[in-house]
Simulated scan of single mutants.
Amino acid sequence: MEMSTMPSRLLIIAALVAAASGVCGPAAMAAGPSGYQDSTYVRSAHQGNLAEIAAGSDARTNATTSCVKDVGAKLVTDHQKLDTDLKALAAQSEMTLPTTPTAEQQQKLKAVQDKAGSAGYDQAWLADQEAAHTKTLALIDTQIRAGTDPAVTQSAEKARPVVAMHLDMVRGGTCHPV
């Protein structure tokens, strides 16, 4: 074997081994939400789901109108389904997810709960849900635009119409029936 071809063959072999092992190229991205954007989305969306499930459950108990109670029930059902997808994505990549909503989300719910049983509760709940779902849509749109993991981006694309529908139900601080 000629010495001039030996280094180039070694480089080709090294490149093939690296690609096959997932050290570089698309195989590294297909394993799970390993990119910063993807893992940030999974964690943030999961905490958002936890917050929406808690807020929806609270509305079913403390709202004064049947519309807010019904929208709360819809949020619980839908966000539980959306969270099932995120938990599966996290499990595939052995990502540990937070077990509670963020401190800010918990404080906002507490502020709404302080008005429990009054018309002020319903107004505060609707306003909080409008802000939360607007923020979640921005998170989803960022993932769709900048995500690198196809499975995570597909999950965001699946969640988008559900979150947009929820926003329509609470838009303008007015309850719009399910």
Rank of each mutant, 00 (worst) to 15 (best):
Q80N: 11
H79F: 03
D85I: 01
L139Q: 08
P161Q: 11
Q92E: 13
A91E: 13
D78S: 14
Q154E: 15
V170L: 05
A138N: 13
V163T: 12
T153W: 01
A119K: 13
L89Q: 01
D122E: 07
V152T: 15
T134Y: 02
A88K: 11
E130W: 02
T142A: 09
Q143N: 06
A159T: 02
V162Q: 05
M165C: 06
D78N: 12
M165V: 01
A156L: 06
G147P: 03
A91L: 06
A164I: 11
P150S: 14
T84N: 12
G147H: 01
L126K: 00
I140H: 05
K115W: 05
Q80K: 14
D149K: 00
D128M: 12
L109N: 09
L167F: 08
D128L: 02
V170H: 01
S118P: 05
G147F: 07
D128N: 13
G120P: 02
E157F: 03
A132L: 07
H166F: 10
S93A: 14
D78T: 08
L109D: 04
K110H: 12
G172C: 11
L167K: 13
Q129L: 02
T102G: 08
A146S: 14
D85H: 09
D85K: 04
D85C: 03
Q154G: 15
Q107I: 00
Q129T: 00
L82E: 03
A159N: 05
Q107C: 07
T102L: 02
K81N: 09
R160I: 03
A119W: 03
K158S: 12
Q129C: 02
P161L: 14
A90H: 08
G147S: 04
D149Y: 06
L126P: 03
Q80D: 12
S155M: 02
A151P: 04
S93W: 06
A127K: 15
V112Q: 03
A116M: 08
G147V: 08
T148H: 10
V163H: 08
D168R: 13
A91M: 05
D78W: 10
Q123G: 08
L82I: 04
E130H: 11
L139M: 12
H79W: 09
A90R: 08
Q143S: 06
L167M: 04
P101I: 00
L86E: 06
D85F: 02
K81D: 09
T99G: 15
A90I: 00
D83W: 01
L139T: 10
A127C: 12
D78A: 15
Q106C: 03
A124T: 00
